[in-house]
Design a protein around this nucleic acid. Sequence first.
DNA 1: TACCCGGAAGCTAA
DNA 2: CTTAGCTTCCGGGT
Length: 749
Amino acid sequence: MSKMKMLPVQLSLNSLNPGIWSDVLWRCPPAPSSQLAELKTQLPPSLPSDPRLWSREDVLVFLRFCVREFDLPKLDFDLFQMNGKALCLLTRADFGHRCPGAGDVLHNVLQMLIIESHMMQWHLPNSPVTPTSRYPLSPHSHPPTPTWPPLNAPPESSPFHSTPHGLAGHHFMAPNSVTLSPPPSVDSQASSPPQAPYQNGGGGAPGAGAVANGGAGATATSVGTTSSSSNPTSSSASSTGSNGSQPNIMPMKGVSSASSNHSDSEEEYSESKLPPAPLYSAGSPPSTPILKDIKPNWTQQLTNSFVNSWSQQQQQQQQQQQQQQQQQQAAAVAAAAAAAQAQQQQQQMQQQQLPQKLTLDNTAGPVLAPAGGSISAPTTPSYMYKAKREFFPENSEPNTNGRLLWDFLQQLLNDRNQKYSDLIAWKCRDTGVFKIVDPAGLAKLWGIQKNHLSMNYDKMSRALRYYYRVNILRKVQGERHCYQFLRNPTELKNIKNISLLRQSTPSTGSGASSMPQAPGSPAAVQNWNSQQQQQQQSQQQQQQSPQRPASRNGPMSLPAVAAVAAAAAAAYGPPPTSPLFMHAINGAFHYLSAAAAGPPPNSPALNTPSAIGGPDKFQFHPLKLESNGSGSGSESAGEDLKPTDLSVSSKNNNSASNEDCYPLIRNADGLTTIKLIRHNNDHQGGAPSPGERSPKPDDQQSAAAAGITSNASSPRPMDQASSEQALPVPMDSDCNGGESEDSFRHMRQ
DNA sequence: TACCCGGAAGCTAA
DNA sequence: CTTAGCTTCCGGGT
């Protein structure tokens, strides 16, 4: 990831191909002005929407319009004797030279129009856009984030139950909208992936978006309608289709819309050569003869293409871009043709629906207003410009880009817009407890991310279990699909090799400095919270940064994945697994539409408390230990949050004994906390050898010997000693309150 | 039946 | 070539 190159914000757009432009613009959006918002509508009708198509006269018309509209100083029109294409190649500096007093304005306005035209191209057959393009070029760049509450999920919306309202907005990005949603999280930190429309989709997606469209109109609402309809696919539905083979075909509604959004991708899309391997041979419904041939591979193809294009762009950047453009366009045309049919209808719908508002407004502000609307995101340019600096964070944490499962989950969970709330959501963010709402859907998305299309929950869960060994995750006993992060993303990112975690026992500080503190420790919890907050902030920044394109199988950024899905859908029709697909699409749109600036939407499925209480505010409550474990077997505790054995320990012979246990504990109030349980005999040496991948059979025996029950439910007994050591964990208000808590609450006796 | 666990082998990218 | 991080299978338990 560090490999990615970042384009200087100011870089001239000339050489950039459209896709790049989008990125650049996205990063460096023109100043938002209300005027711009209306710009489009006020432009002389005779002007082609795509500035590149302007004739000399059109250029002059445009200039005059700008002068008039923005009260710009008089321009020397002779300096603009060029057609639209040439005009588009002018850099900000070029504009500045030609018209010192108005160069920036002209440049910005033009960029807006370019972006808009790109967006619109999505709808057009010949201009497939790669979503990736819109992602920031720099991997680490972080959009300046306003300080919004980290988790803030607005209390109002409940993630899981949130209504679909925002659908439309999420789903479709208004072509006009300038606001490109932040790139998918580059890092886990950047976790805001695109919203999945599907949630909203009416269906029952639980978390649907909390995003209120209300916001600037941004929302692209337009299409939204469709999407919503589409979606009825509830998450559950998606789950059913677990594997790609499913023939279920979703209406493209959402999809098409999605496709529309991507503007840039044409080139990229074209660039990549479509790999032959069909992903969903059977299932995919061919809508068109052409599609038929192509469909099977769509995902992969798209993925690859996007990825490739993206990477190329970043690497080659300006120099080769023009060439690429041409090539890509050519390719795009072909690709577009296939998609054309599917898209046409939707395009129409979208266009009709797209309110003019959408057009430029977005630039000004976050596209999607938080449901609560309470959060103020930096809207404009200033915001965007600020981000510039952040594009080159050298010190930034390692960027995993969601390539790692934990990071992927983090990204989804931390999505500001709760776009993935129907797939996965926090139950208690402060303690890292989350629930996989739609296992099949999540697995599917993960599969797309990793290019393992046969991924299913069973496989993914195996990967999750793998994390038990390294204390990254643990299962929340008694609740299906519920897991808990034992280490926060920051920690994880700083750990070069996760395998090392196996050795590191959280308990004593002795662990390598690099090692994070014990997961369950209060400190860890605090970190969890604080880091979560930081992540969110950083996420915004990162969103703008491009990720390193994945290599063939490389994972794509979430947004990219979503974009791919969306693009694929647009082009080929719904993939076999519609729900997921829809989800991805929605997400893609979301990204596109989501204002980078937008504050976190609040739909917090599981609201994070931290926001409420204050991030760093911790309250310690007396804990009531649940008995689980070894002896006490009291099942009374119920299924609730029993401490789960950190598998790690159990596997390693002695290690088990050595390691600390961080079971979840509910206090009398039903608060969930994590307790650090340390085994008496922990000795450092016990750590398993790092290299040891596969636990030995005898592990369990040894574990048992250590007094650990092999039983998953309570690996480590919580003995008195442990109880004594139990550390209170900060409680988040969220954990207590809010729906998120419900699950916990109902569990309590 | 679905979920969950974890061993074992294999794959891929770095 | 080695290693990390899964992925894929699988048998078994709840």
